[in-house]
């Protein structure tokens, strides 16, 4: 028996390029749109959201949407203290799309609506997105660590064993693709036993099903777009935008777009995050604290961490690039490009 290399190329490169382990808690990537709230959550009363420990107040007035650094009633008094994020105006660029309010985080001179990620299964104007598909959850970790948890497939068998099933299948293949701004993980599972929840309330009578699950991650704003497609069955597309609240917490206004699934699965599926998410938090909370410690002892990896290590490497590259003052998007990056083919959407 020989000792096979336990890390893929990205993992080895990540180890070689940096002497220290990555520090997910300190990544503060700029010039990107954050989906800071569901459109439907914002009315005339100002709501406070946080991006990278910075206040974003949202409200509507006379049919207009405002995203500001200060509360509306204090805006005039505080405007002198407005930051470079709003060019001193106090107002962030903000746009509504896919049922979210997107606020620009970065230099307002670089703002472009085309930098909002494409989400092909959601109506761009947000019309008709049912409220039951929208669930806000909070993660007790910095956004990149939470994203890494989402990319990581192997923990499901242990941390989520009771919720997700036995993980038995005939064949399970994972591939990773990336650009300078995205990581795409594709998982192909053949003949896996149908998850109990799908069998009992999801109308899938078969014993086995195939799964093709695509996860598309935008690095700067941690917008994670998933398209798991079950045959027999249906896709359960979802969006999980990990908005960085700070070094220790992130907030996710997710959209589990189950509208094409049968009832009552359609309504119940979005609630599964209430089971899964506390399980994830039980590991993320201590994990996050330990990424503040000395990075002399680097994390060990197995080949199953290939996608996660690719993510780490690309995040570090992006952070290094921004440290050098380069906030531009590379030629290989176009967040608004249609990704329905990438996700493998039918029809």
């Amino acid at each position: 028996m020989s000792e096979v290399p336990m890390m893929d190329a990205a993992g080895r490169e990540a180890e070689a390029t940096s002497k220290r382990d990555w520090v997910p808690v300190n990544l503060d990537l700029r010039d990107t749109w954050f989906p800071v709230a569901y459109s439907a959550d914002i009315g005339e009363r100002a709501v406070r959201r946080i991006v990278h420990a910075q206040d974003v107040y949202l409200w509507r007035d006379g049919g207009r949407l405002y995203a500001a650094e200060f509360r509306p009633d204090r805006l005039e008094a505080m405007r002198a203290g407005a930051s470079a994020f709003t060019n001193g105006s106090g107002f962030y660029p903000a746009v509504e799309r896919y049922g979210y309010i997107w606020a620009w985080y970065g230099n307002p001179d670089n703002v472009h609506e085309e930098l909002i990620p494409n989400i092909p299964f959601l109506p761009p104007d947000g019309q008709g997105i049912p409220r039951y598909t929208q669930r806000a959850v909070r993660f007790d970790a910095a956004s990149p660590l939470s994203v890494e948890n989402l990319i990581d497939l192997t923990h499901a068998d242990f941390l989520h064993a009771n919720a997700i099933g036995d993980g038995q299948s005939e064949n399970d293949v994972v591939e990773v693709h990336s650009t300078s701004e995205t990581v795409t993980r594709i998982r192909n599972v053949t003949r896996k036993s149908v998850a109990p929840v799908m069998r009992w309330i999801g109308g899938v009578r078969a014993q086995y099903q195939d799964l093709r699950a695509v996860l598309h991650v935008h690095l700067r704003n941690n917008v994670c777009i998933s398209y798991p497609n079950f045959t027999p069955g249906y896709p359960i597309p979802n969006v999980q935008p990990f908005v960085p609240v700070g070094k220790h917490r992130s907030r996710v206004d997710q959209t589990n777009y189950t509208v094409h699934a049968p009832a009552p699965f359609r309504w119940l599926m979005p609630r599964i995050s209430y089971v899964i998410q506390p399980q994830d938090n039980s590991v993320l909370r201590p994990q996050n604290a330990r990424y503040f410690e000395s990075t002399e002892r680097r994390d060990l990896s197995s080949r199953f961490d290939g996608p996660g290590n690719r993510y780490r490497l690309l995040m570090m590259r992006l952070a290094e690039r921004q440290q050098r003052g380069d906030f531009g998007y590379g030629a290989d990056a176009d967040p608004s490009a249609d990704i329905s083919a990438v996700l493998g959407m039918r029809g």
Partner: peptide, 18 residues
């Protein structure tokens, strides 16, 4: 010493320094 990483193939072995 780490003596098991789930889902490794039969011919795969955990590196000795793990």
């Amino acid at each position: 010493l780490c003596n098991d990483i789930p889902n490794l193939r039969r011919d795969e072995r955990v590196p000795a320094r793990y």
